[in-house]
Amino acid sequence: MTSYQIEVNGKARQVNADPDTPLLWVLRDNLQLVGTKYGCGVGSCGACTVHVDGFAMRSCQLPLDQVGEQSITTIEGLSEHGNHPVQRAWLDHDVAQCGYCQAGQIMTVSALLNHSPNPDDAEIEATMSGNICRCGTYTRIKAAIKSIDSVG
């Protein structure tokens, strides 16, 4: 076990864990930030997506010793009151069914919009196809994304 200081949701956090521990389990087990979900552990479903310096990353593929000074944002830190434009769009379109994958979907979209405020269908599909929704809410996810003018 090694002691690390990492920045999560704007705060410096101290964690003791093995260097190869995926960030996913650091968040869920050490920091009790369970909004980031385990889905596959191999970077194939997107349920564990977080922002690393503003870019979407699969936290199951990022070992703790490679986090360094990078700033991590999880679904819990995306907005103070759940009022990020993407979260609002998700509520407006009542996207969720079981809801398990939606934190990952929202983190992927919000990172996309940081860099491309008005994505077209092709860009949305290319980005979002890394996130599986077993309930099949894809048409609503797409409609919700398209309803967001821009995060500016």
């Binding site: 369970v34 909004g35 385990y38 679904i75 759940g82 509520l91 009542d94 969720a96 809801g99």
Partner: peptide
């Protein structure tokens, strides 16, 4: 008359709701 998912807000904010989130 359509009503929104009563746990919608908790879902989009990553609130612990699922069995795997139990602590």
């Amino acid at each position: 008359n359509s009503k929104k998912n009563v746990q919608g807000r908790q879902i989009v904010t990553g609130h612990p709701l699922f069995g795997i989130d139990y602590r």
